[in-house]
Design a protein around this nucleic acid. Structure first.
Lengths: 269, 269
DNA sequence: CTGCACCCTCCCCCTGGGGGAGCGTCCAGC
DNA sequence: GCTGGACGCTCCCCCAGGGGGAGGGTGCAG
């Protein structure tokens, strides 16, 4: 390749099917430096050898890899590291696909005319002392945190009894909030993260969500509609009780989750 | 529901797991009008009956349905229309998923070290008169347009001979460009959109792309690199010849597409 | 040497959100 | 009846990753 010709940005654009604008942006982002930049005119010049790099960037962008991540992938010289970074993103795509599937299923259920009316019960619950693990958790970490906390509870208390959770509203508002999981225990021990907690007495509006938690917010909504329709207001973090959960069966369709929202009466007018 | 309680935006937010900000945005976008807006204070008030609507919006947004489309879906009163619009979007998701799959496959090929060197041939081609259909087409419409044009060509000329296409660069730059498909014909007829076209004599840098067209741009890139490496420049729209295509076999892996780029010599210095 | 295609930078626009400032409102407790 | 604090309002700037277009400089062929 003696004296391989340099290409203007327009030629390079035609050869890579990336727009001129986009090439300039990739230059600014440090993704794809032109082989040469004329100091006087600012003209960018590329070479044919840069085409494969442009192709890789193109593909990664088609997969919605953020520019910063693309840069990281391109900069890692070791093909192993590179492959690992790509595999990382593919895993992310996979889980996104899973969420999409769940949303589609849930949407179908939502659009089915007349979803079965919710069955809500008003229940006065006394203060209870339980063995608990609690923490401030980010919404996306809840599932992992729950698994770890529940495993620790199981280990300390024993896997008997129906587990429950208490979830701060802020979790769904700001994406971060206080979370507590608990198991009933006659004399709650104190070990590691496990410690006794007394849940206050409350009046709960209770309903049961059947199935996986993908669309549990729909049941939340129905419960909320019932509550406000009965001139009640919500006060305090929601309580969930896992009547049938992953510890009982691997089939999510069989799960039964009791949702209890602390309420108090609102006098109209 | 005598006197169902109205909810402040904060309460409604907690009940729907949509952020207060987002609810305000949906109001501005006309997606979810509060049941009542206090004229003096500007306070938004919602009712429990609006919760299901909020849920549907939530699900649609999880599926990346644009707000405008969500509005259209919500506004269509007929459940049939509504379902059709949703199905439309699900189809879009499906094709997007397909593109993602293709991009992943292509990326794997790209990252495999040492892709086989391209086999490029420089070929002088005389002017040829063919039966053609041509039009200005948008990039996303090319496949459909191609199918229709080729069917018309087949009907008029007969399905003999190797089909080809000529694609304006602008197609890949601005997403819209001039496209021409052709079949060889001794005495090209004129019928419907079919008419004779004389392709000018050119010197072509030719290579063959094997497989589906998902990553044909990679072959384009390799061809481009070869061209510039040989002190040539690209001049004019690319020509494709479908040696083995969908008319010949349903297996995309067996497709063979000849890519020819008109070139001219560039004297260095 | 002139015209024109090409290139440059800079600014604003789009999508759907988040963070935060600065200020008004509502209601419970005193 | 007053007051504090939680909550509401609007408005502006920020993010990604582009696109459109203005206004002006360059390079090359006829």
């Amino acid at each position: 390749m003696q004296g391989a010709r340099v290409l203007t940005i327009g030629e390079f654009s035609r050869l890579t099917h990336l727009s001129v604008r986009t090439l300039r942006r990739y230059h600014d982002a440090g993704l794809l430096e032109p082989a040469e930049v004329d100091a006087a005119s600012g003209y960018r010049y590329y070479t044919g050898e840069q085409i494969p790099t442009a192709q890789v960037i193109h593909r990664l962008r088609e997969l919605d890899v953020p520019l910063a991540d693309v840069a990281r992938i391109l900069r890692s010289p070791d093909p192993g590291t590179r492959a690992a970074l790509v595999a990382d993103h593919l895993r992310r795509l996979e889980s996104e696909l899973e969420r999409t599937r769940a949303a589609v299923a849930s949407l179908r259920r939502l659009l089915r005319p007349k979803p079965a009316a919710v069955d809500v019960e008003l229940r006065r619950v006394p203060a209870t002392t339980v063995a608990a693990v609690e923490d401030d958790v980010r919404l996306e970490d809840v599932l992992g945190w729950y698994a770890g906390a529940m495993a620790e509870l199981d280990a300390v208390v024993g896997p008997a009894g129906v587990p429950g959770g208490v979830y701060d509203d802020a979790l769904f508002q700001t994406g971060r909030g206080h979370v507590l999981v608990h198991l009933p225990a006659g004399d709650p021990p104190r070990s590691g993260r496990v410690h006794p907690v007394t849940l206050p007495a409350v009046e709960l509006a209770v309903t049961t969500h059947v199935g996986a938690h993908d669309d549990i917010d729909v049941t939340y909504g129905e419960l909320g509609a019932w509550v406000t329709g009965h001139l009640l207001a919500v006060a305090g973090p929601v309580r969930e009780t896992y009547l049938v959960g992953p510890r009982d069966t691997a089939d999510p369709a069989a799960w039964r989750t009791e949702i209890g929202w602390p309420v108090f009466s609102v006098t109209p007018g």
